[in-house]
Design a protein around this nucleic acid. Sequence first.
DNA 1: TTAAACTTTCAAAAATAAATGAAAGTTTGT
DNA 2: ACAAACTTTCATTTATTTTTGAAAGTTTAA
Lengths: 167, 167
Amino acid sequence: MEFKEAKNKFVQTWGALGSQWGINKTMAQIHALLMVSNEAVSMEDIMDELQISRGNASMNLRALMDWGIVYKEYKAGERREFFTAEKDLDELAVKIARERSKREIKPALKILKEVSSIDSKDSAEEKHFVEQTSKLYDFVLKADNMLDKMTEFNENWLGRLVLKIMK
Amino acid sequence: MEFKEAKNKFVQTWGALGSQWGINKTMAQIHALLMVSNEAVSMEDIMDELQISRGNASMNLRALMDWGIVYKEYKAGERREFFTAEKDLDELAVKIARERSKREIKPALKILKEVSSIDSKDSAEEKHFVEQTSKLYDFVLKADNMLDKMTEFNENWLGRLVLKIMK
DNA sequence: TTAAACTTTCAAAAATAAATGAAAGTTTGT
DNA sequence: ACAAACTTTCATTTATTTTTGAAAGTTTAA
């Protein structure tokens, strides 16, 4: 396999993986492309390599920047903007975890708390509902806190964590 | 908020959350419904509560059973089948982790290994590509192994893990 | 063996999500 | 202030995913 083919395969695979995890394909592909580029890439080049429209490129670059995993870069003497990805994987994982926690887990916790707080009166059905949703609330809260703790580690947290777990 | 409303809110929220994580809405809703039911539910009732077609119910129940998080149950004297969800959350998390690892992470690892194995010849561009994808391979492998380790813990792994991490 | 009671399948339809591209908006150099 | 160079927005189109429902399949009881 030669470079160009490998690069393409990587970008496509990452894109497909992204969509399985609720991140749109183009967003994941752009990120993949930037991850393996040794220098900042212009929007023009991104459009060209991924065969996507200007609007699509623009919107997804914006989204990636909102997630804090892609940065704008300015080159001296160049009018247009260039983009680079966060390449440190620990940092990347932390940022993704934070963002998903904020966007999805936190709101879900709010709902869980709400629905588990009804008074279950007397029926077994209602009692079971409250019990189950309360357990779920505790579980999700604990998992979310774990993510928070991980982000505090920050340097090479995954490696350290693996060590700890394996005892 | 009264029971019926709370239950509905829970099912809807869980469904929305599912789709953000690459699991289809109905599948997540059925699972939610079964999670909070104190007894096994017939397909008829599932169709009725979620307002979905027979085919949709059937296919998604099948998928949930493939994931190992929903079970068929037979009631004495009843012709039709009833369904229950895995209600133990540790067990649930373990099964989901295993399944996603098998379906998504393992294949991704294979591709990463492949593309990071090209010989990078001389250009800085190619060297950077190989370096980045190799790092990614190591990272994903480590994360996946961590999931495996967790599944071995099995009893209340999340709680124990939280204790360990917080030292 | 038959038919009633139930489940599964899958081609087609509907719903949802993503992409396009032209127009509007910005920024920068002169 | 102007216009060239570039970016963003968003209504419309396109692609993808999910759902439907009728037909085919299966199981069970008599």
